[in-house]
Write a protein that binds this DNA or RNA. Structure first.
Lengths: 337, 337
DNA sequence: GCCGCCGCTGTTATCGCTAACATCAGGGGG
DNA sequence: CCCCCTGATGTTAGCGATAACAGCGGCGGC
């Protein structure tokens, strides 16, 4: 578009070509009212002719704010967080914001603070933190940012301006579904204890059992990996009294299914399994997995809305939005023998 | 840290506190040599005391370049692209760059051009495009950006400054592994034809068969989904002469495994399967999947290096780097009966 | 002992934009 | 007929940094 070397056109170049002052160009660009229609057209034409594009750095410098939203997220390929990230980028782009991602290796106080810092350096207009673990929540409490901040998947009890999936409701639905199929009780392979997601799912599982008057079996703590699910499965396969298992995510369920299959325990004939996340492959596990689907798109959109609301109006930062997940029924659940 | 409302400290504030000029502060910040050690320490102390952080917008304005790298990527939860994205963010952050992500819904000319445009508005210092499909490659050819540009997973024949996984070598290794196990030939369930990844894997598969003098069976085209793998599996299960299948990714393999399991064809006893990607769960498929692991970290790092090299020195933009993947052997491969 | 260079620091101009104020022509009310 | 207001535009002053150049001691060489 440009001959290399010649600097790209600035506002004054446009102004000169259109025969107006640079300020008039600025007014046209920012949609200010008092500009004659004819002038506006001349300026537009000049902009098009030169291929002018405003310099965001200059604008950010003088206004003190950018059109950049920062996201702090865990650098992982975990399905939940990365779906959330993708969905958020999409929503932000549609709203005309650029998104700067600061992924962190671990969600501890120091890493989070570092990522937030780097974003503040960029003078982001707002900040979204996907903070599913307790340490992250604590870290955030201590960081006064001075910019609009929305937490996604943070501490449901503490954080302001929070959007989260209703983990408790999802887990209750999963557990109830198994109880209604006729199982006396439901075992739970949980996620890491310091993740809110995991804690909420444990809570929902426990609630559903207690409401139904069912015995609450010991919790099987794990991380989010298929490997941990496999380990849990090796144990459960040896326990004939276990007929129903709810795992904290689909990958745990995958590992569990393999362990059961190796030991000759058939699903759902001998044992029913429900997962959480509805990863795209869940329908192709052996057997197809009944699971809970969080509405990541809705979470992302709600997060953005909350952020934009804070940006125009600093009031009402206490809003929190909880998105209900839905149960997806497939073939991994059946009545007990 | 700051009292709300009072503007954040600027370089002159630091200078006043340290009893020097703002220029000396600038020199300290940028590591210029000729500053007395004692002065440097005083400035550092003042910076710490005020919690000063440089204003990137101002710096970008005066230097004409930002510390922002733009990434254009497909907004998907596909394992390959999203791993690449995560790895790149990591590498860029370590090199002191912020990363602005412009994800696009489709990789067509218009979407790509739009995303590139938005990034140019931000005055990114460099641009990385993860462009695994043909239409994206064509779109890029037409866009003169004027900034350093690196293509990841683009057209191996055309693009300059390209980093890619050696799809051909990976597919050859997978296919040869199956042939060496004793199979007469290997079938292939491929990815979408317009993806370079898919094309390279087809090519490698074909090469390996031809080198070995094996018959080349008809290609089974699919997309990347487990559903497509399932469909292919339903067909293959009915064909007793098929003893070895190479799928273009692990999720296809997952769907295939389920279809085979439903029809009573045992893996690896009746049929061997090899995938591609080494998703974290691949070790927990039934049975554990032999697959090809692309080194996403290495790709990302190489991409960043290439970009940085272009940024300091506009010469040598024709470099292309091909990263070799490795074969991960698990239990889904055995000799034919 | 003077010149010149070097190491350190300060002064000034500038990047491209927006905000605030200045200007100026034209029109309606007293 | 003058005043004031209003709509359209221009002028000026920064935003916060870097770059280029200017000063100013002190030290070595002749």
């Amino acid at each position: 578009m440009d001959i290399r070397g010649s600097r790209s056109p600035a506002m004054t170049d446009v102004a000169r070509l259109a025969g107006v002052s640079h300020q008039t160009v600025s007014r046209v660009l920012n949609g200010h009212p008092n500009v004659k229609e004819q002038t506006r057209l001349r300026v537009r034409a000049a902009i098009a002719e030169l291929g002018y594009r405003p310099n965001r750095a200059a604008r950010a410098l003088v206004t003190g704010r950018s059109q950049l939203i920062g996201i702090v997220a865990l650098n992982s390929t975990l399905y939940g967080p990365s779906s959330l990230l993708a969905a958020f980028e999409q929503a932000a782009a549609e709203a005309g914001f650029a998104v700067s991602v600061g992924s962190v290796g671990r969600l501890d106080r120091e890493s989070i603070a570092g990522a937030v810092d780097r974003h503040l350096d960029q003078r982001v207009a707002g900040l979204v933190v996907i903070a599913p673990v307790a340490s992250a929540g604590e870290a955030l409490e201590e960081i006064a940012t001075g910019v609009p901040l929305v937490t996604i998947d943070g501490d449901p009890r503490r954080a302001h301006a929070l959007v989260t999936v209703d983990q408790v409701a999802g887990a209750r639905a999963a557990t109830r579904h198994l109880l209604q199929a006729g199982h006396r009780t439901v075992w739970h392979v949980s996620g890491p204890a310091d993740w809110y997601d995991a804690a909420g799912r444990i809570e929902g599982w426990r609630q559903a059992l207690e409401e139904a008057g069912a015995e609450v079996p010991p919790l099987l703590p794990a991380d989010w990996s298929a490997a941990a699910g496999y380990a849990a499965g090796q144990m459960l396969a040896r326990m004939p009294e276990v007929t129903a298992v709810f795992t904290a995510n689909d990958h745990l369920a995958l590992g569990l299914l393999r362990a059961l299959s190796e030991r000759g325990r058939r699903v759902p004939h001998d044992l029913s399994v429900v997962g959480f996340d509805d990863v795209p492959e869940a329908a192709f596990f052996i057997p197809p997995l009944t699971t809970v689907r969080p509405a990541f798109d809705a979470v992302a959109q709600a997060g953005l809305d909350l952020l934009l609301a804070q940006m125009v109006d600093t009031a009402d930062p206490d809003n929190r939005i909880v998105i209900a997940p839905s149960l997806v029924k497939r073939e991994s659940v059946a009545p007990p023998r």
